[in-house]
Simulated assay, not measured.
Amino acid sequence: MPLDDRREDFLVAVALTEFSVHYETADPKLAEQAWQLAADRLVDHDVRPAEAVDALEIGV
Score class of each variant (00 low, 15 high):
Met1His: 11
Met1Gln: 12
Met1Arg: 09
Met1Ala: 13
Pro2Glu: 08
Pro2Lys: 01
Pro2Ser: 06
Pro2Gln: 01
Pro2Leu: 00
Leu3Met: 07
Leu3Tyr: 05
Asp4Trp: 00
Asp5Leu: 08
Arg6Pro: 12
Arg6Trp: 04
Arg6Val: 13
Arg7Pro: 07
Arg7Cys: 06
Glu8Tyr: 06
Asp9Trp: 00
Phe10Gln: 03
Phe10Asp: 07
Leu11Gln: 13
Val12Lys: 04
Val12Tyr: 02
Val12Pro: 03
Val12Gln: 08
Val12Trp: 00
Val12Ala: 06
Ala13Pro: 06
Ala13Lys: 00
Ala15Ser: 05
Thr17Phe: 04
Glu18Gln: 11
Glu18Asp: 13
Phe19Arg: 09
Phe19Pro: 10
Phe19Asn: 07
Ser20Gly: 11
Ser20Asp: 10
Ser20Leu: 06
Val21Cys: 09
His22Arg: 14
Tyr23Ala: 09
Tyr23Asn: 12
Tyr23Trp: 10
Tyr23His: 13
Thr25Ser: 13
Thr25Leu: 11
Thr25Met: 10
Ala26Pro: 13
Ala26Asn: 15
Ala26Gln: 15
Ala26Trp: 14
Asp27Leu: 12
Asp27Ala: 13
Asp27Gln: 14
Asp27His: 15
Pro28Asn: 13
Pro28Arg: 12
Lys29Trp: 14
Lys29Asn: 15
Leu30Cys: 14
Ala31Val: 04
Ala31Asn: 03
Ala31Lys: 00
Glu32Ala: 15
Glu32Met: 09
Gln33His: 08
Gln33Val: 11
Gln33Arg: 10
Gln33Gly: 08
Trp35Val: 08
Trp35Arg: 13
Trp35His: 12
Trp35Asn: 11
Gln36Val: 13
Leu37Tyr: 11
Leu37Pro: 14
Ala38Gly: 14
Ala38Ser: 15
Ala39Phe: 09
Ala39Glu: 15
Ala39Thr: 15
Ala39Leu: 09
Ala39Arg: 10
Asp40Val: 07
Arg41Tyr: 11
Arg41Val: 07
Leu42Trp: 02
Leu42Asn: 04
Leu42Ser: 05
Val43Phe: 04
Val43Gln: 08
Val43Thr: 12
Asp44Ala: 10
Asp46Ala: 04
Asp46Val: 02
Asp46Ile: 00
Asp46His: 03
Asp46Tyr: 01
Asp46Gln: 01
Val47Arg: 00
Arg48Tyr: 09
Ala50Gly: 11
Ala50Trp: 07
Ala50Thr: 12
Glu51Ala: 11
Ala52Ile: 03
Ala52Met: 10
Val53Ser: 05
Val53His: 02
Val53Gln: 03
Val53Pro: 03
Val53Lys: 02
Asp54Thr: 11
Asp54His: 09
Asp54Met: 09
Asp54Cys: 06
Ala55Ser: 09
Leu56Gln: 05
Glu57Pro: 03
Glu57Val: 05
Ile58Asn: 01
Ile58Phe: 02
Gly59Leu: 01
Val60Phe: 01
